[in-house]
C-alpha cells in the first residue's frame, strides 16, 4: 500500500489504511510531541488527539507528493502541543527586548548524538524549549513564532537566545564540547 492509496482509504474511513498511516508516522509524531511537552503520557495523548483530528479532517487534505503528509501531520501535532501548553500556562512570557543574536558554537552539535541532544532539549524550560523547537527544528521565523505564541517578535528572539545559551552550557557541562 502506498501513501497516496492509504490517504484515499482514510478518506473512505477505511480502518486498514488508517492503521497503515498510524504505524508509519506515530513514532515520529510521538517524538515530536515529547520534544514539546516533555511528559510521555501527555505526549501520547496529544499524539492520539492529533491523529484523530487528522482522520477527521483528511477530506480537506490534498496530497501533493512525498513529504506533504508528514508536513500536514507535523502541523497538526504542533498545534495540539501548543494548545496544551497554552492551557497549562507554559506560554506566558514576559515581554523582552530583542537581544543580539547569540549563535551556538558549531562544534557543539558535532560530538553529540541525536538522543543526547534530544534529552538536552527536553530539559530546557517550557518557553525556551518551545521557541527553540519552532525556530531551530521546525524552521519557523520569529514573526511566525510570535503570531503562533501570541508574543512579541523581540520576546521570541530573546527566548531563543536564552535557549541557545542554556543548551550550549548544558553541552559543555556534559563533556560533549571539545574546543578546537
Amino acid at each position: 500500500m502506498t501513501e497516496q492509496k492509504a490517504i484515499e482509504g482514510c478518506k473512505r474511513q477505511d480502518r486498514i489504511s488508517q492503521k497503515y498511516l498510524f504505524d508509519a508516522y506515530s513514532d515520529m509524531m510521538l517524538t515530536l510531541c515529547v520534544r514539546y511537552v516533555k511528559s510521555l503520557p501527555d505526549a501520547e495523548e496529544l499524539m492520539l488527539n492529533g491523529f484523530f483530528s487528522f482522520y477527521r479532517s483528511i477530506d480537506r487534505f490534498v496530497y501533493s507528493g512525498t513529504g506533504s503528509l508528514v508536513a500536514w501531520l507535523k502541523k497538526i501535532m504542533i498545534n495540539e502541543c501548543l494548545m496544551f501548553l497554552r492551557k497549562k500556562g507554559a506560554l506566558k512570557m514576559n515581554e523582552e527586548r530583542a537581544a543580539e543574536d547569540v549563535p551556538i558554537d558549531s562544534n557543539v552539535a558535532d560530538n553529540i548524538s541525536a538522543g543526547e541532544i534530544f534529552k538536552l532539549i527536553t530539559t530546557l524550560p517550557d518557553g525556551y524549549r518551545t521557541v527553540f523547537n519552532l525556530f531551530a527544528i521546525e524552521g519557523y521565523g520569529h514573526k511566525e513564532i510570535a503570531e503562533m505564541l501570541n508574543i512579541a517578535e523581540g520576546t521570541s528572539k530573546s527566548q531563543l537566545n536564552k535557549a541557545r545559551a542554556i543548551l550550549q552550557q548544558l553541552v559543555k557541562q556534559n563533556g560533549h564540547y571539545h574546543e578546537q
Partner: peptide
C-alpha cells in the same frame, strides 16, 4: 528521530 533513538 524515532522513539527508539529518543529512548521512548
Amino acid at each position: 528521530m524515532s522513539t527508539l533513538q529518543a529512548g521512548i
